[in-house]
């Protein structure tokens, strides 16, 4: 595993400076977990910045935690100001949330880190890293690390070939077999920076569109619905797929729509601070509605 200790030190120094200077209340970064991997860490005290790490196990998209920081901890107080360590893929989620009015730019300090690609627990490069064309965050307040020397790749959507070659009924059978394993733990939704509705339309507890029973038909609806709601908003961080305890290849659903959005609208979520073309604002003049 590549441990970029120089970059880790820069992250710590940056975090210390922000906390000591009172610029932010909390820094969200990575620390080492009990079994050696990386895990999210919330640092409130400059004395704790030594816990922060940076290495190729830092897979989590920490931008998702900004949703928890939108409200003040106590009534009458201000919401906290937060710094977040963001890889290039994660930083695209910052743009999505800014465009959607979910976070206030001045309350969030983005510690952008350049990225040489991550690895799974067995040391293999992550699929999304192999096709990554970003390598440098798209939005940041400070940029740490040198842009790595990797030859730029063309995303040919090779990962989709398998399912796209299938006929319609074969493909349906493939997905139903995958969804059958789903335990509907909702981890895929909970981890997603783009899934922040207070009441998810596909939440089993709500019951308007989806049944509380765990039949495969209900899971089918949940997965297709969730994918559609992320069309043009999914930043391809693959967090949903990583957290799935049943290894359901959710990226194949999301990336199918990513490709569609790119072909139809030339849009790739979060590269710029714009809304997905599938969403529009209700307004007066000039608005489509």
């Amino acid at each position: 595993m590549l441990v970029n200790e120089a970059l880790a030190q820069q992250v710590r120094d940056q975090a210390r400076e922000l906390l000591e200077g009172g610029r932010v209340d909390c820094v969200i970064g990575y620390e080492t977990g009990p079994r050696g991997g990386a895990r999210p860490a919330f640092i409130y005290d400059a004395a704790d910045v030594t816990r922060l790490i940076w290495n190729q196990a830092c897979v989590h998209n920490l931008v998702t935690y900004l949703h928890d920081k939108k409200k003040p901890p106590r009534r009458g107080e201000q919401p906290p100001r937060v710094a977040v360590v963001a890889k290039p893929c994660d930083s695209r989620a910052v743009n999505v949330l800014l465009a959607e009015g979910q976070i206030e730019r001045e309350r969030v300090f983005v510690i952008g880190v350049t990225c040489e690609g991550l690895e799974d627990e067995e040391g293999a490069a992550l699929p999304r890293c192999l096709r990554c064309a970003d390598r440098v965050p798209v939005v940041y307040d400070v940029l740490l690390g040198e842009p790595p020397e990797v030859s730029p790749v063309e995303d040919g959507y090779g990962d989709l070939a398998g399912v796209e070659e299938m006929g319609a009924s074969e493909r349906l059978a493939f997905w139903l077999r995958e969804f059958d394993r789903c335990i509907r733990c909702y981890a895929c939704r909970q981890v997603c920076p783009g899934c922040y509705c207070t009441t998810c339309m596909f939440e089993r507890d709500d019951g308007l569109w989806i049944d509380i029973g765990i039949e495969v038909s209900q899971k089918h609806l949940f997965h297709l619905g969730r994918a559609l709601h992320l069309a043009g908003r999914c930043v391809e961080c693959d967090e949903c797929e990583r957290v799935c305890p049943m290894d359901i290849p959710l990226s194949l659903l999301n990336r199918r729509l990513t490709r569609e959005m790119e072909e139809l609208y030339g849009h790739r979520a979060g590269r710029e601070e714009v809304l997905t073309p599938l969403l529009f604002e209700l307004g007066e003049e000039g608005s489509p509605i």
């Binding site: 895990r39 335990i183 509907r184 733990c185 981890a187 957290v243």
Partner: peptide
């Protein structure tokens, strides 16, 4: 708890 995702994995397994 701050890093918890509020999923249901731990309770379901």
């Amino acid at each position: 708890g701050e890093r918890c995702l509020s999923c249901r994995i731990c309770t379901y397994v």
